[in-house]
């Protein structure tokens, strides 16, 4: 137990360190601008005086490390600064959008995880059958599809031809839960199709790997049914790699939302970052990147810790 705690503490520290370095990179990126933020904002025609005044307003006249520490300290208190495009508080812009994005990612995960685990176990059970090969080819193809292709096919079929679903996912904080689930079903399905393949293939591979071990042969020789051997004997030992791949795919979901949100005009963080990149609204891009990166790092860290806990062998690295 002590060892596990040590290991977890070690990973957490490492994760925080990575997060810290990433925040430096995101902050310093702007320093690479030809000229500086003020020049980039005001353009070539700006006079020296306005530039100087603007620099002062953005506190660009202070040394870099002071600005970095202040920026980081403010963010830790939830203050991301102001948008350059419309002067609004960034934290205000982000608040509802972040919860929308998290909602979409969670919704997709609720569909994708059980579905891909079931399909994966089935593929392992009926290995080398027609079902297995079909699923294999289908998943291999679905990884190869760009997200917007899947999204538009769904729109084309379900919104335009069948007319069942709305092609735009407009949600606001007042939207009731039922309607919210309904309008975000299409983006969630798109994301599901994007992440499912990987999870399914890993589940299948993890189980098949185990099927060669002696204790499975023993179970087979005892005359247990195939389903029982796989579900009761193989699956429990396969959890570690499966959990790992599930969490990694959740991390991918958080990033994958960007394109899907743009297609469905879903008011999330992905939309915001894309709009801000187009306007070169640097503070907003920095804030969004930091949030995306932090979520991504935290989820990957979780995957790491979970796999250590579920596989005691990893505690004794050779």
């Amino acid at each position: 137990m002590q060892k596990i705690l040590n290991m977890v503490a070690q990973r957490l520290t490492l994760g925080l360190l990575v997060l810290f370095v990433v925040s430096i990179i995101i902050f310093l990126g702007v320093e690479l601008l030809p000229g500086d933020l003020a020049e980039a904002m005001l353009g070539q025609s700006a006079t020296e005086e306005t530039l100087a005044a603007f620099r002062k307003e953005l506190k660009l006249d202070l040394p870099m490390h002071t600005r970095y520490l202040e920026w980081l300290f403010n963010i830790l208190q939830g203050d991301f600064g102001k948008s350059l495009a419309n002067g609004r508080e960034i934290s205000e812009l982000i608040e509802t959008r972040l919860s929308n994005t998290l909602f979409l990612a969670l919704f997709s995960a609720f569909i994708a995880v059980p579905l891909s685990l079931t399909l994966g176990v089935l593929a392992a059970m009926y290995r080398n059958t027609f079902y297995d090969r079909t699923v294999n080819i289908l998943t291999l193809s679905s990884i190869s599809f760009p997200e917007f292709f899947i999204a538009y096919i769904l729109i084309f079929v379900f919104s335009i031809n069948l007319g069942w679903m709305p092609s735009l996912s407009n949600v606001s904080p007042e939207t009731p839960l039922g309607e919210r689930l309904f309008v975000s079903l299409m983006p969630a399905l798109t994301l599901t199709l994007v992440v499912m393949a990987h999870m399914m293939r890993m589940t299948r591979a993890a189980i098949i790997n185990l099927l060669a071990s002696p204790y499975i042969e023993m179970a087979n020789l005892k005359g247990l049914s195939r389903a029982r051997v796989i579900l009761r004997h193989a699956l429990p030992n396969a959890w570690a790699p499966i959990i790992n791949v599930v969490v990694i795919n959740l991390a991918y979901l958080i990033v994958g939302v960007v394109i899907v949100e743009v297609v469905f005009v879903y008011p999330g963080l992905g939309q915001l970052i894309v709009d801000s990149v187009q306007n070169r609204d640097i503070p907003v891009v920095q804030a969004c990147s930091l949030i995306f990166a932090a979520t991504y790092i935290l989820l990957n860290l979780t995957a790491d810790i979970l796999s250590i806990i579920s596989n005691p062998r990893l505690l004794h690295p050779r």
Binding site: I25, V255, I273, C288, F292, A293, Y296
Partner: peptide, 8 residues
Amino acid sequence: MAIPQLIF
């Protein structure tokens, strides 16, 4: 690699 590729 700690920063998601698309975001970076």
